[in-house]
Amino acid sequence: MLEGKFEEASLLKKIVEAMKDCVSSCNFNCTENGISVQAVDNSRVLLISLLIEKDTFEEYRCDRNITLGVGLGSLSKIIGNGANSDYLTISADDDADKLNIIFEDKVKDKISEYNLKLLDIDADLLDVGPMDTDATITLPSADFAKICKDMKVLSESLQIIVTKDSALFQSVGDIGTGNIVIRPKTDIDHPEESVTISLDKPIDLSFGSKYLSDIIKATSLSQKVTIKLTDQSPGVFEYKLPSGYLRFYLAPKFDE
């Protein structure tokens, strides 16, 4: 038996909205520690890794490990029916073929209950393990989203060049070029506005703009995004949850 109660439906809504355009369906792996998802997008360029730790939930129990195959478009439609501030409880029996979804209005005496048919999804898990990182940038997620949107008008690729004291985002396209430089900044009054750059090795990596457009759909999940970059390796874009994370692993573009 799985049962997880979110304090606010908005959190699961944001998670699903951030994932559903990259991945149409995925397995929710439920254990006593929480719920995790790993899924690769249809073009096999972007990998999503989600961890919702049990502390994220107001109440959580999972008696036995269970895997729930979920169509994210369908889940999105159903959870769109609840108000952001509602309690949202998901539950499933051990051998369930459906996921129960219950919204509780905190003011009105109103409870809404839905069932989502589960899918049988055959998917390999990839070992993304801990990896060495050459450069790590942490910046406001809204700023990163704007950089990606602004650069996308110029080119299908966004080049990220990190040196000791700056990160340069560069697009070179048919209509012209664009450069945005950010530098480390500590804002004591507004720590969410701070920018940090740590560097072991200078980085020059290119990523597909259309995949970055998918990644920044997670912006509302966290005020900050952490970008981990390693030469000729996937970039990791991490949005922290109250307890857990949503990470995107994006394969780079480079000459062989």
Binding site: V45, L126, A251, K253, D255
Partner: peptide
């Protein structure tokens, strides 16, 4: 010309 690599080429299956 840069080539878009597949994420599957970087990680192995469990």
């Amino acid at each position: 010309m840069d080539k878009q690599h597949s994420i599957l080429s970087f990680y192995s299956s469990f």
